[in-house]
Design a protein around this nucleic acid. Structure first.
Length: 116
DNA sequence: ATTATGACTGCAG
DNA sequence: TCTGCAGCCATAA
C-alpha cells in the first residue's frame, strides 16, 4: 500500500510507544518529518487498527476530548489509567512526565525534574 | 480538478 | 487557565 505510506508510518510509530507513555499528534507528525500533518495522523488513528495503541495518542493540550467522543474513543482515559497514566482534575495528562520521546543516538535517561 | 470535512496546532483575547 | 479563530495537509465526494 503505497498510497497510505504515511498512515503506515504513523501506525508503526504508535506501535513503538511503550505503556504508561503518551504522544501528541503533532509529536508523531514531527517524528515523520512534518508536524503540520498532525491532522493526517488523526486520520490514521481514525482507522485505529487493533495493533495500534491509539489510546496513547492525545492532542497537544494533553487531553483526549477534542470535539466529541465517538464510539470506543471514550475508553481512552480508562485505558491510559490502566497503563498507569494519571489524569488531572480537568482530565489532562502530564506530557512532561508521560510524554514519550524517541530514543536518540545514545542513552536517553530520565531527566530529573527540579520539581514534582 | 474543486469543494468540504476532520480523533490537530498555535496564537490571540 | 480556558475559549475562539485561522492555517495546513490528506482523504472523500
Amino acid at each position: 500500500m503505497a498510497t497510505n505510506g504515511f498512515f503506515q508510518s504513523v501506525y508503526k510509530l504508535v506501535r513503538q510507544v511503550p505503556a504508561g507513555c503518551v504522544v501528541t499528534y503533532g509529536q508523531i507528525a514531527a517524528m515523520l518529518g512534518d508536524p503540520r500533518q498532525a491532522r493526517v495522523v488523526g486520520w490514521a488513528m481514525r482507522d485505529c487498527p487493533a495493533e495500534v495503541p491509539w489510546h496513547r495518542v492525545v492532542n497537544s493540550k494533553g487531553q483526549v476530548s477534542t470535539r466529541n467522543l465517538t464510539g470506543g474513543f471514550n475508553q481512552q482515559r480508562a485505558l491510559l489509567e490502566d497503563e498507569g497514566v494519571e489524569f488531572s482534575a480537568s482530565g489532562k495528562i502530564d506530557l512532561r512526565r508521560y510524554g514519550w520521546q524517541q530514543p536518540r543516538g545514545g542513552s536517553i535517561q530520565d531527566e530529573g525534574r527540579d520539581d514534582e
